[in-house]
Design a protein around this nucleic acid. Structure first.
Lengths: 248, 248
DNA sequence: ACATGAATATTGGAT
DNA sequence: ATCCAATTTTCATGT
């Protein structure tokens, strides 16, 4: 870590860290940023926070908003140099061709941080979690619904939930955690066909359960005689009692 | 700035800085992040860089990519507290209702940075700019073209440029700053139809003006009797003469 | 490599 | 507060 480094010290520090790799680099201070590629932009001299990640992605964060002022998703080439006494970072990408140049006019702080990548698994409110929640309480999908199977294997994949409705019909339920697309409809359709082929004597319904559905998917559902059910089965974290061990 | 602070020290530090406002806050270390709102996600314990900006926006950056692992664009309420010996940041937004909670299990570093907002002017090459440039000089699109309207509203949306060609025909121009897709063709097609419906007695051409076009889009254009015109209205910063005082 | 589609898209402006 | 449109969208996926 360096505080108020000279341009030479900053350039040497960044150069060494870039060669080493593996660290998240950070420079705070007054800089000018230039982007040229899919569009073109120039950020005049101002205070910014510049982040350079181990994968070569660069982002220049200003004082407001989540979106960086300038950025580069991933870079094929990244280098630092001295130009007329100023440390300059150049990050380039080839496809599409674009370039970000950051000139550190008055660096106030430079940091190299090791971010352990181990165990950084992000679990989105997962489909599995949603499946368990709905399995515990199938009536959320439809009153009178009784669960028969979870993750039932078929020749075309696994059925999320298989249930029986109040009228005794089989119900194939396909779950999506986020907005359901025509892919989900296609999947559900195949499952329903597969089940119908096995139990020809029983009426079989298909239900797509998701928090939302795209318009084309809804159209296709209707055309195939399938149904959509809006479910938001994710645990309501605002109102749910705190889990011991998680956040305290 | 704090290094390896205790949870109590971290909570006190963040609380004070949040009350003061104006600073960009940063915490590096092992934490758990929970998001609930438009979707739901949990990031398991791992090393992250957490940024809290003066406008209340929160982002949790992992070791890769420009996009944060978890984030919140702006917050109506932000607070820090101690829960069972762990400093916890809670950032809430009301519309849409969403919540981010960050539990700092093992903080390694906490920083408060002053980012001066003065003079952070950013010049972009945007579609609006491209539109103005072409409006000033329509001959770039086609010799003899005369501008009639900009952003002309129709029942199916706004026409970027409406012009008259050398032969007196109306020309509907659809602009795209980047590679035009079939979406742009569809849009142009609707505009042309809309204009033809209004002025049945005058021939109407449709021109898609963009720096590039996808192959399917070009095919569709041809099938619909529309035209493509390559324009590169963005300022080319690579070839432009260097400004003295800017990057050397 | 390219095209296509989804996303907690974000953001700014108009209504 | 909603809706609409632009964005260097980014990112993942299929071809």
């Amino acid at each position: 870590m360096l505080t108020s480094p000279t341009s030479e010290a900053l350039a040497a520090f960044l150069d060494e860290q870039l060669r080493l790799g593996g660290a998240l680099l950070q420079v705070v201070g007054e800089c000018e940023v230039l982007y040229s590629g899919r569009a073109a932009s120039v950020a005049e001299a101002g205070d910014y926070l510049v982040l350079v990640k181990p994968d070569g992605s660069v982002q220049v964060q200003g004082p407001r908003g989540v979106k960086p002022v300038n950025w580069q998703p991933q870079t094929d080439s990244i280098a630092v140099g001295l130009e007329e006494g100023v440390a300059v970072l150049t990050a380039e990408r080839f496809t599409p061709a674009e370039l970000v140049r950051v000139a550190f006019d008055h660096p106030a702080l430079a940091l190299a941080i090791e971010l352990d990548e181990n165990g950084n698994f992000v679990l989105m409110g997962s489909e599995a979690e949603m499946q368990r929640a709905l399995a515990r309480n199938p009536e959320v999908i439809e009153p009178g619904l009784q669960l028969l199977e979870m993750e039932l294997p078929t020749d075309v994949g696994g059925i999320d939930l298989l249930a029986r409705d109040a009228a005794g019909r089989l119900v194939v339920v396909e779950l999506k955690r986020s907005k359901a697309t025509h892919e989900a409809v296609h999947q559900l359709s195949r499952y329903v066909e597969s089940v119908r082929a096995v139990v020809g004597d029983c009426e079989v319904r298909g239900v797509l359960a998701a928090p939302a559905v795209t318009a084309p998917a809804l159209n296709r559902l209707g055309a195939l005689g399938l149904e959509f059910r809006e479910v938001t089965a994710l645990p309501d974290l605002d109102e749910a009692p705190q889990q011991p061990g998680l956040f305290g």
